[in-house]
Amino acid sequence: MRNLFDQSIQKQKEEHEEVEFSDGVSEVELRLFLKGNEVEDSGDVFVEADGTSLIIKLKSSGSVTTLLETNHLYDKIKPAETIWYIDEDQLVINLKKYDPELKWPDIMETWESLAVGVVPILKGSSLYIVGESTKINQKVAKELAVGLGYTPLNTSELLEAYGNQSIDSWVIAEGGDSVAEAEGAILESLSSHVRAVVATLGGQHGAASKDDKWRHLYSGFTIWLSQSDTDDEDSTKEEARMQIKDGSKAYTNADVVVKLGGWDPDLSQTVAQACLSAIKRLILSDKKLPGKKSLYIRLGCRGDWPNIKPPGWDPSSGAVPQET
Rank of each mutant, 00 (worst) to 15 (best):
G202P: 09
I167L: 13
W313K: 13
D304Y: 02
L153A: 01
V119H: 04
F46S: 14
C301S: 15
I77C: 02
A274Y: 13
P265C: 09
H216M: 05
E323N: 08
H193S: 09
A49K: 01
R195G: 06
L201S: 11
D264C: 12
I121A: 08
L217V: 02
W111F: 12
Q269N: 08
G312Q: 05
F33T: 07
R215L: 07
E27R: 05
E143H: 04
E38P: 02
L260E: 00
S169F: 01
G184H: 15
L289K: 02
I172T: 08
N253T: 03
G262N: 05
G24L: 11
Q273I: 10
V25Q: 15
I83K: 14
G262F: 05
I77W: 04
Y218R: 06
M1E: 00
P152E: 03
S113N: 05
E160P: 07
G262Q: 11
V171H: 02
L299I: 10
N71Q: 06
E109Y: 00
G262R: 09
L289S: 02
D6N: 13
K210N: 14
L187M: 14
E15H: 03
V92D: 05
I167V: 15
W224Q: 04
G184A: 07
L91V: 12
D177Q: 09
G300H: 14
S219P: 01
K97H: 06
V64M: 13
N71G: 10
A274Q: 15
K280F: 01
Q273S: 07
S113C: 07
I297K: 11
G312Y: 01
I167G: 01
H205V: 10
V28H: 02
Q138D: 07
P152V: 07
L276P: 12
D177E: 04
S53H: 05
A49C: 14
D231E: 03
E160R: 00
D212C: 02
G262L: 06
D264W: 14
A141I: 01
T82Y: 06
E238W: 13
K280I: 00
